[in-house]
Deep mutational scan, measured.
Amino acid sequence: LQLFIKTLTGKTSTVEMEPSDTIENLKAKIQDKEGIPPDQQRLIFAGKQLEDGRTLSDYNIQKESTLHLVL
């Protein structure tokens, strides 16, 4: 599924993920695209901070969801 990652600067990146992927996997993919180390990334979806060990489906993240990346 395609996700949009929006940064505080207003920049939006697109990443392709599976519902079974963990937040950790997602942060690794963001690191590949943006060069931001996972330990500096905080991802927010629906007002919640996402935890590394959980999966996208745990948070009911659907295709074309927008996640907010806070550093």
Rank of each mutant, 00 (worst) to 15 (best):
L1E: 03
Q2K: 15
Q2G: 04
L3M: 05
F4C: 05
F4Y: 13
I5A: 00
I5V: 07
I5L: 05
I5M: 02
K6M: 11
T7I: 12
T7D: 12
L8A: 13
L8E: 13
T9I: 07
T9C: 14
T9G: 13
T9K: 11
T9Q: 12
T9A: 12
G10I: 03
G10Q: 04
K11E: 11
T12Q: 07
T12D: 04
T12K: 06
S13I: 15
T14D: 04
T14S: 10
T14E: 07
V15F: 14
E16R: 10
E18A: 12
P19M: 09
S20Q: 11
S20Y: 12
S20H: 13
S20M: 10
D21W: 06
D21M: 08
D21Y: 04
D21N: 06
T22K: 08
T22I: 04
T22S: 07
I23E: 00
I23W: 01
E24K: 12
E24T: 08
E24A: 15
E24P: 02
E24W: 14
E24G: 13
N25L: 14
N25K: 15
N25M: 15
L26S: 00
L26K: 00
L26T: 02
K27P: 01
K27G: 00
A28K: 15
K29G: 02
K29H: 07
K29W: 10
I30H: 00
I30T: 01
I30G: 00
Q31M: 13
Q31N: 09
Q31R: 13
Q31F: 15
Q31P: 01
E34S: 13
G35R: 05
G35W: 03
P37W: 06
P38S: 14
P38Q: 13
P38G: 08
D39N: 12
D39T: 10
D39C: 10
Q40G: 05
Q40D: 07
Q40M: 12
Q41H: 03
R42V: 15
R42H: 11
L43F: 07
I44R: 05
I44L: 11
I44S: 08
F45Q: 03
F45C: 02
F45G: 02
G47E: 05
G47W: 04
K48S: 09
Q49R: 09
E51Q: 10
D52R: 03
D52C: 05
G53P: 06
R54V: 05
R54T: 06
R54E: 04
R54Y: 14
T55I: 08
T55A: 07
L56E: 00
L56N: 01
L56M: 06
S57E: 12
S57Q: 13
S57M: 12
S57H: 09
S57G: 09
D58H: 10
D58C: 02
Y59T: 01
Y59H: 03
Y59C: 01
N60H: 09
I61T: 03
I61G: 01
I61F: 05
Q62E: 11
Q62T: 14
K63A: 15
E64D: 15
E64G: 15
E64Y: 15
E64S: 12
E64Q: 12
S65F: 06
S65V: 08
T66Y: 07
L67F: 04
L67D: 01
L67R: 01
H68Q: 11
H68A: 06
L69I: 06
L69W: 02
V70S: 09
V70R: 09
L71W: 10
